[in-house]
Amino acid sequence: MTALDAGPRTEDAGAPPPVRPRRSRTAWLGSDRFLAVATPVLVLVLWEALAQVGIIDTRFFPAPSAIVVRGVEMLASGELVEHTWVSVRRLLIAILIGGVPALLLGLAMGLSRKLRAALDPIIAATYPVPKSAIFPLFLLVFGLGEASKIAVVAVGVFYPIAVNTVAGVREIAPIYHDVGTNFGARRWQVFRTIAFPGALPLILTGFNLAFGMALMLLVVAEMLGAKSGLGFLIWNSWQTFQVENMYVGLVVISLLGFLFALLVKGLEGVLVPWRKR
């Protein structure tokens, strides 16, 4: 990652002693990391300025500073922590309930042609159905309590993980299965030493996609049938026209998504150290 000596090299013996090319003082301004931080900051500063001057309507787009102030207030009152915790808890339970069966079924389907033949059509047919569309059904079946919200998110999580796991197993080169057979790996050993590690990169991609889906469904479910959680916070703020609170909810959701993506990336480094990067 050191692109310091990018200057031209002079190898000519008669030439004056080569001046060591120096990195210019402003080079960091063009670095990727700086740009990644600078753009959002710029947007926020612009937004703040426009709000302060009154060019944009602060009833709809309150100044970032006002949102921060409100966020701190909500943190202090414990309101924000409570809503966030309720949502995170639902997310984690749903990911567990939806993700683990999806992972196991995906591995089994990836390995077995028969199982794929039996289940592929069902999955292909139900995959495109927006899971939010079946939330009313879940409300009927599971009632207004926690179960209906967790169930709809779990179903939403199931698909991307199952589909990606199947694809991950299918992508493993056949030669590795030959090696397993030739070295006497039993069914469970093939599962553990070939299918799972070989599919892991795509499984993690599946989890990443699943989390986006989970956030979306959770917010919808909480808007429609909950008395707590970030979705409820946003919906309730709208109904009482507390626009700053709404933005606080949005910021927390985007932070959650960001943190989860970081977590998956970290996991990737630990679990898939063999991947060329």
Binding site: I175, Y176, D178, V179, G180, N182, F183, G184, A185, R186, Q189, T193, I194, P197, G198, L200, V272, W274
Partner: peptide, 27 residues
């Protein structure tokens, strides 16, 4: 019998050690 395959056949997700130990571990 054990086979030495043509081309890349060692598991990319295992270290050299675990690859070499594969048959013995499976047994």
């Amino acid at each position: 019998h054990s086979m030495i395959f043509q081309g890349d056949s060692i598991f990319p997700w295992m270290t050299v050690w675990d690859n070499a130990a594969y048959g013995l571990t499976m047994r």
